[in-house]
Amino acid sequence: MKFVAFERAKQGTGASRRLRNAGKVPGIVYGGEGEPQLIELDHNALWQALKKEAFHASVLDMELDGKSSKVLLRDLQIHPFKQQVLHIDFQRVSAKQKIQMKVPLRFTGEEESNAVKTDKALVNHILTELQVSCLPADLPEAIEVDLSKLEKGQTLTLKDIALPKGVEAVLHGHSAEDMVLVSVVMPAVEAEAEAAPAAEAPAAPSEGEKK
């Protein structure tokens, strides 16, 4: 995705307030070989871009002073109750250096699985995003997770899926085997119904009761 930023000359609370009143968003871009640089963006254009998943999890092309550079969205401050972006941070990235980024998990095929279609089980998405490490060119917009083979009682872990080429998961001390992505459970009502027949079966009468 591409977006346009403009150089911002002034900083401080007052200057930022005047920018917001004029429909602009103050921001900063840092990292890479250049010095941190103050920028401003058009609020309406930014607000529309933020609605797209790719803006949060992709390498972006930022045009600034007629030059294009690769950046990542790193921080975003939103007004507590207004639809207003207060401040935004971007980080420059190098094509030769690996980056770490949280990428959305995109689940597909759930309704076609035996777990849902036949057994009417509930599929719980334990994780909705995964932190990965890769070169900027290998960063996926999302990671596809096929759930069409799910069975009742199954647990899907990171070990069970294939990551895109060049992409590694950042495990934070965990293993791929214990990082659960999806679990399949029966609805509480049905689980109780399965247990009910044994509990409700009438007991055989004793010899005393027969008399």
Rank of each mutant, 00 (worst) to 15 (best):
residue 77 Q to K: 13
residue 182 V to C: 05
residue 58 S to Y: 08
residue 161 I to C: 00
residue 158 L to F: 03
residue 72 L to C: 08
residue 132 V to M: 07
residue 54 A to N: 11
residue 121 A to S: 07
residue 116 V to Y: 11
residue 147 L to R: 01
residue 66 G to T: 08
residue 49 A to P: 09
residue 121 A to W: 01
residue 143 I to R: 00
residue 153 G to D: 00
residue 186 M to Q: 14
residue 80 P to C: 14
residue 59 V to A: 08
residue 88 I to W: 07
residue 102 K to V: 14
residue 170 V to W: 02
residue 144 E to N: 05
residue 181 L to V: 02
residue 93 V to I: 11
residue 128 T to V: 11
residue 106 R to F: 02
residue 137 A to R: 11
residue 151 E to P: 08
residue 182 V to L: 05
residue 91 Q to V: 09
residue 121 A to V: 02
residue 59 V to L: 11
residue 132 V to A: 04
residue 68 S to E: 15
residue 104 P to V: 04
residue 135 L to Q: 09
residue 81 F to V: 13
residue 51 K to A: 11
residue 53 E to S: 14
residue 107 F to W: 07
residue 47 W to R: 15
residue 143 I to M: 02
residue 125 H to N: 02
residue 174 H to T: 06
residue 90 F to R: 10
residue 110 E to A: 05
residue 83 Q to P: 12
residue 139 L to Y: 02
residue 50 L to W: 14
residue 44 N to W: 09
residue 120 K to G: 00
residue 86 L to A: 12
residue 77 Q to C: 10
residue 64 L to N: 10
residue 87 H to W: 06
residue 92 R to A: 03
residue 52 K to T: 14
residue 132 V to K: 00
residue 77 Q to D: 15
residue 115 A to M: 03
residue 81 F to N: 13
residue 156 L to K: 10
residue 92 R to H: 14
residue 120 K to F: 03
residue 60 L to E: 12
residue 150 L to H: 07
residue 53 E to H: 09
residue 147 L to I: 04
residue 58 S to E: 14
residue 131 Q to A: 10
residue 155 T to D: 04
residue 115 A to V: 00
residue 179 M to L: 15
residue 148 S to A: 07
residue 130 L to I: 01
residue 162 A to C: 01
residue 71 V to R: 06
residue 182 V to K: 03
residue 136 P to L: 03
residue 130 L to N: 01
residue 152 K to N: 03
residue 152 K to C: 02
residue 182 V to Y: 07
residue 179 M to I: 12
residue 131 Q to H: 09
residue 45 A to N: 11
residue 92 R to N: 10
